[in-house]
Amino acid sequence: MLARSGLRSTRILNGARNGATAFTKRSISSNSRASTESPMKLNVTVAASTALAIGSVAWYYHLYGSTAHAMTPAEEGLHPTAYPWVHQQWLKTFDHQTLRRGFQVYREVCAACHSLSRVPYRTLVGTILTVDEAKELAEENEYDTEPNDEGEIEKRPGKLSDYIPAPYKNDEAARAANNGALPPDLSLIVKGRHGGCDYIFSLLTGYPEEPPAGAQVGAGLNFNPYFPGTGIAMARVLYDGLVEYEDETPASASQMAKDVTEFLNWAAEPEMDDRKRMGVKVLTVTAVLFALSVWVKRYKWATLKSRKIVYDPPKGASNNVRS
């Protein structure tokens, strides 16, 4: 009984649905009749609204779109070209032969004015120099001792734990010696300048033979397009053949600049080689763990995946449903 009444009720519902669809059909046909009267009107509205939308966007960008530049390109400085540094690739280390050459350039050229105050001799061991070389280098300089029994501070030769000495006693002395311009400390210069290695390399090699026509160069300044403002107190220092490399690499100005830039990058992030190795380690371990998890999943799901669910209905009941 219940089933039959249910069937009847669905029939009634169907009837109602048919009635509804018939009604909607009618309404659609009546609407289309009305719209056939003015297709032009519709098209014009669509075209006009679209034109208004596009026009207002265009007008907005005309009014507010372009950004205002407060600085001239000369004040911004020329943006350095991206050079294909090998050590900046994901899986590449510093070229330690290059670092050795770069350190030589720093010592023979840059160290006259620029300090490298955050780099102790011990960090050079194993990356740039051998232990004995680094010790020898450290002993070339004198450092203060602890106060002795009479309370006096004496001088002792440097040790591996000492830091590379600065060329000037303090910033004021550095300014006084350089026409008022302070040579920045180079320990973190690669991290501290926009453009990093590219900027340092471009700056070192970018001095033109003469400034372009009409450019204003202040007194005691040199024209360098890469330096913001283009007037830099540091004159060009790297000239071809300035340094004699021990591995007999031809010491062209760009070669020296490349070596010293990579060395300064090492000084700024000496952990880079280890950091990249750690990255590879993480990827490797993750790959192993992922493979393990796939195997474990297969093992755990084996019973679930290989089972078969069968519905076996009782024969008597099925007859009842059909009637």
Binding site: T72, P73, A74, P212, A213, G214, A215
Partner: peptide
Amino acid sequence: DCVEEFFHLA
């Protein structure tokens, strides 16, 4: 001055 033109060329 020709700084901007020089920049483009460089």
